[in-house]
Amino acid sequence: MSSPDVLASMFVFKGVPKRSLHELCILAPPVQFPLGATVFEQGKVADVALILIEGRLEVEVESRGQYRQVGQVHPGEIVGEQALFSRGGERSATVRAAIASTLLLLSPEMMERASGNPAMIAIEQQLLATLARRLRRTNQETQKIWKEAGSIAAPGQKKKLADRLRGLFGGGR
C-alpha cells in the first residue's frame, strides 16, 4: 500500500481528499526507521515534529543517568510538536522505534508551504485536541499528586509520587 493510501485509512485524515494526501507526502516524504533506531534524542535541538504512519515508537526520559519509559506512540499520533512553535528548543525526551516504523517529518518550513492543504488542517486540528487533552490531564494529575505529597513524609512514599510525576513529562500519553 502506498503512503497516501495508508494515510487515507487513518482516522486523523478521515474525509481528506486523496489528492491532498499525495501533496502532503510530496512536501513531507515518508521516512523509515528500523527497529531500535533513535528518532529524537533528549537534549538535542528540536527542529521537526513527526506524525507516525506505521509502526510503534517508545518515549523515554533520562534523569540522573536512568532512562524511564514514559509512553508509546501509535499510528496517527504526533510527537515533538514543540519544535514547530519554539525555535531553538531542546528535546525533552528520547523517541525510539519500538518496531520498524514509517513517519512524516513536519518542519516549520513544510507547514508554511502546506498552509490551507486539508491534510495539514486535519493534522492541526488533531494536534489541538491532543494538546488540550494532555494539558488537562497534566494539570489534574499534578494537582492530585501534589495534594497527596503534602500529607506524606516517608521517603518511600515520596519516591512513588515522584515516579508518578515523572510519568507526566510531556503531558503523559
Binding site: L135, T138, T142, G170
Partner: peptide, 22 residues
C-alpha cells in the same frame, strides 16, 4: 497551538520542580 505548547512547556517545568522538591 503555539499557546497550548507554551502552556504545556510551563506545566513540564513545574512538574520538574515538583519532582526535584520531592
Amino acid at each position: 497551538l503555539s499557546s497550548l505548547c507554551g502552556q504545556l512547556a510551563q506545566a513540564n517545568a513545574q512538574i520538574r520542580k515538583l519532582v526535584e522538591d520531592l
